[in-house]
Amino acid sequence: MTQNAAVRVRGLRKRYGGVAAVDGVDLDIARGEVFGILGPNGAGKSTTVEILQGYRTRDGGEVAVLGEDPAAGGREWQAKVGIVWQDGGAAQELTVAETVRHFARYYPRPRDAEEVIALVGLEEKAGSRTKALSGGQRRRLDVALGVIGGPELLLLDEPTTGFDPVARRQFWELIRSLAEEGTTIILTTHYLEEAEALTDRLAVISAGRVVAEGAADTLAGRARARATVRWTEPDGTRRTEETDTPTRTVAELAARFGGGEVPELRVTRPTLEDVYLRLIGERDGQGVAS
């Protein structure tokens, strides 16, 4: 178990001033998994990830990342954990290639700098100074610096914030290719679509606690939830029916329409967004979902 667990967290707690930012989080993440941490702003996502990075100290609980306590992680441990930072920290006056090659020197078994630059799609910008990069390109450089050491585990905190849709899709491809290479990936995001597209499993954090955990398509009973069947009657009236047995409803409709097409027929289950809003709404006691 411990051999194959990339991350094991029990009862993690962190307070800022008098406020609990993380209030008893448990997580188990297997090696090779792509794991998402979802939650509203201020829910404790970033704090949790920063504790896993070893950047922030914790007030309570047990944390093991690749079998070691991040608070005591030495250089060998740091060489195995790649971090993609959310903002800045790359020298403006160095070129992309110079920066990546320089960071490669810090690691005992770095990946080839040119290969990593190609992996993040910055070949054409290799000779450009960092200050000349666009926001999306700079984020790719951040990813390049996160993976240059050939990490076993990669931690990304809201990696696609501020990306346009095209850049986001390209970024997803990059994450998928890293996952295919066997890298364990943990990312926080507040884009539900992104969590659904990328992660094997995810945890929803709200007010410092994990309120649901599982695969995106089965999260919080999503696959078993009541389905909604929508269609339009011949006289133009739109009809909606919530049911536990959508197949039967559709069969009845088909019979009623004499085997012809049922106009505007749609069968839907709750989206991840529906589930998510219900989860964080419940915690806030605001009843966002109806």
């Binding site: 194959n4 667990a5 090696r31 090779g32 195995k80 810090y106 005992p108 078994r109 990946r111 066997g182």
Partner: peptide, 27 residues
Amino acid sequence: MTAVGSGTPSRTVPVAGERLPGAWRLG
């Protein structure tokens, strides 16, 4: 948890003699 990714990729297998670069050289 079962053996997910039980074999680490070859590029990260430690080879004898591969050490963390020293402070002096990195300095």
